[in-house]
Design a protein around this nucleic acid. Structure first.
Lengths: 196, 196
DNA sequence: AGTTAATGAATGAACGCTCACTTATATTTG
DNA sequence: CAAATATAAGTGAGCGTTCATTCATTAACT
């Protein structure tokens, strides 16, 4: 039995992400991807059922990797400020080290493909962040809040800054580069909002 | 000379927004749009140069309308808390009254089409929000911040809540409905973060 | 030899877009 | 006032192209 060439699948996935980041979902096609990865279109259909399956599984894989990275060194028992800081640092680190994957997810987040992702990571996400919230509230380090408000204030600003970074320009400045200082400054304000 | 049937263009625009909101940019096509609006595909090309032109002009128009609505009753001389509250209320109002347009923009925001929108509204946006920031800082109602951080904290949480609303479910709760109470609660926290 | 990986050409469907044409209104003419 | 003319709106069939997907075949490994 002839074994699969794992490098091939790896290359297919990598090129797919690259193509979507570079040219958007519109500019992405199976034949183009095959040419870019140096394989036959038919080969792609050995690994994936169809185009949707390919994109879906890419999203789930990347988002999962990203999420687990976000919780590196984190535990729900941590003090609120420390726990939030670690998560911000992790997400920032990921965004620095894997810019293509980060931008890929930022693109996919607003397509119907992301529903599948939500299904697959929602549970783990709530299972970790939920107890972290409860513990923090019990320790009086976080004001009691609905989960959605908590998330909106705790993380949306960070992702907005990342979006500005990739966009390269915001409403006022012609260029914007996210760095550690700006991240820390923003995090401090977020903590100020959420602490009792 | 036969006059244009303005209802036709209106219907084309409305159906286009509806289609993109319902089926995403992938599910949107000129022929489909023509059938949905009950006109010939060729008619669409009387009003728009090509598909990109159609989408671009739709984005610019809707985003412009949305932005001007956001500044209704607002002036840069207002006190910070009052000015921010008015903007949140306006955006919330828009999101209640024109849910399709709001969701349309939320979808388009992360596509390459939005670059054109940025170009067209960036100036007005900065011209109003810039002075508002400066005034607020001078009055010691707002801590000095880079514009991007200000925007990320002042507005990203609101848009995140709106996104949750459309998504209908967040990481924890199975359903989420944004209402005035939740909005006000979130705004209070944002103000707490931004006030000196 | 047997099994699966991998191929490249081929396919029908869907796409954006155009063209030859008709229809509706405004203007000119007698 | 009405008929003739001019002009732009609007049409529907169909063009060439691109797309996702498949199939008959070959290559590579156990």
């Amino acid at each position: 039995m002839r074994p699969r060439d794992e490098n091939k699948e790896q290359l297919i996935r990598q090129m797919a992400i690259e193509m979507i980041v570079k040219h958007g979902l519109d500019g992405f096609g199976v034949n183009k991807l095959a040419k870019a990865a140096g394989v036959s279109p038919a080969t792609i259909y050995i690994y994936y059922k169809d185009k949707d399956d390919l994109i879906n599984r890419l999203c789930v894989a990347v988002a999962g990797k990203m999420m687990s990275h976000g919780f590196k060194g984190f535990s729900p028992e941590m003090d609120f400020a420390e726990g939030l800081k670690i998560q911000w640092k992790n997400r920032m680190e990921y965004f620095i080290n894997f810019p293509a994957e980060m931008e890929f997810i930022e693109i996919m987040r607003y397509t119907h493909y992301y529903e599948e992702v939500s299904k697959s990571i929602t549970k783990d996400f709530g299972a970790i962040l939920g107890p972290f919230m409860e513990n923090s509230i019990a320790k009086k380090q976080l004001i009691p809040l609905p989960f959605e408000i908590y998330w909106a204030i705790a993380f949306a600003p960070l992702y907005q800054l990342i979006k500005y970074h990739y966009q390269g320009k915001s409403y006022v400045n012609t260029t914007f580069e996210l760095n550690d200082t700006l991240m820390t400054q923003t995090l401090e304000l977020v903590l100020k909002a959420l602490k009792p």
